[in-house]
Amino acid sequence: MWYYEKKLQYPVRVRECNPRLAKFLIEQYGGADGELAAALRYLNQRYSIPDKVIGLLTDIGTEEFAHLEMIATMVYKLTKDATPEQMKEAGLGAHYVNHDNALFYENASGTPWTASYIQAKGDPIADIYEDIAAEEKARATYQWIINMSDDPELNDGLKYLREREVVHSQRFREAAEILKEERGKKVYF
């Protein structure tokens, strides 16, 4: 189970109403390498992986939900009070027709989130390497969003989230080393 702390992991500040940036940022909300896919991927893999790395998947999976909340806050602030006309100009006309200004789990091009974004092969090595790749892809996505954003306060939050991808990748790499260790070999008598 979880306890909820009613605050964000890192403060989110947005300087200006910018629905176009929200359209790009939604990639990290409901995209293939986004925070929702990450959280669900790790929390789902926990059940069929050696005990030594279950805790890591629980911790990182939980933190990904904290990141999801930050992204949601960013998207919400970027589009809050945007008029239908502004939404249309930002390429969010179709989104507005379907959802008004509500958030939706979709990627930057409007494709709804799908469970096929989550991989679970059941082979511990394959799953941990999948997780490392997912962290690097999320780090790259943050970089490309920062490259297109001119909001310094929003970018501060995005740079924090990018750094967490770096740390998570390191932890998964350590998990791979644990899985590779010879300590787990069968003892014959």
């Binding site: 005990d51 082979d123 511990p124 090595i125 899985l179 590779k180 787990g184 070999k185 069968k186």
Partner: peptide, 26 residues
Amino acid sequence: TQRKFYTPYVSPTDPCPPIRIKSYET
């Protein structure tokens, strides 16, 4: 070894007969 072994947690209430030693490929 190219196969590692571990002993997953086994609950006294597991419905299937438990496999006490599991393995994965390295």
